[in-house]
Amino acid sequence: MRRVIYRLGWPGTIALLCVMGFICMALFAPWLAPYPAQGAGAPNVVAKLSPPSADYWFGTDHLGRDVLSRVIYATRISLSNGILIVGFSLLIGLPIGLAAGYFGGWVDEALMRVTDVFLAFPALLLAVLMAAAMGPGFLNSVIAVAVTWWPWYARLARAEGMVLRGQPYVEAARLAGVSHPRIILRHILPATGRPLTVQAALDVGPALLTAAALSFLGLGVLPPDADWGQMVDAGRKFFPARWWYSVAPGLTIFLVALSFSVLGDALRDRTKGPSRASA
């Protein structure tokens, strides 16, 4: 623990705890939520739109469901949304970027021009278009956002690949007769790990926000599943009189996005620091 604090600093450690807390929340939602059935979507109309109270800490929604339980259940969808978007983006962007950067020449030109096409569209607009074309749903919204997201990873990976290609130890491996795929796997990929982890951690927040925005526009998950964006949207109709409905999921989005970006910053600062003998 002390080593974590030493390496990440206080803000980073708190952010890490928050992130881990939210992950636990997603994993153990049925045990943590005060009303698991309502969290999963069962209506409870008798308590419709009641304000925060001892029974319902964050109040209830228009179907009388406990907002706290809903937020806890929505963590599952929103968090995996953010992580999956970044994961898919890495899956597409990393190989393309590394190949472009490592091989250079016409491979680079071809791959990066394709990347530019995707970058040319405003990200949210493209995501909305994609989601509208594919229809709402969890996986569709992940794919829609990942399609706008991967070019950034491709560019980052390309920059790393270009730098590493010229490194004497990579050249030495080439001269020793090591094949290109093997060089990429053994020398280039491990070296890009750090900058890309940092970027990925920084990006989970914005990715999750974009996914929330899609849900807010009605292009994300479908009821009775809920994610935070969709909850904010649902609560909007009752705002500001029944403010708790939107505020609870809104604050949660804020907290999670902040945690991921503070954590990402802490990780980045750590990599900038002096080399550590214990690593």
Binding site: Q167, P168, A172, A173, A176, V178, S179, H187
Partner: peptide
């Protein structure tokens, strides 16, 4: 592979991520 190459700065020409064993195994395995 019939040419052995040694360059100027060994700390740049040896991968910082690999052990000496892995570095020496690389050309042999290639």
């Amino acid at each position: 592979q019939a040419i052995g190459v040694v360059s100027q700065n060994p700390f740049l020409s040896l991968s910082p991520r690999l052990s000496v064993r892995e570095i020496l195994a690389e050309p042999l395995q290639a």
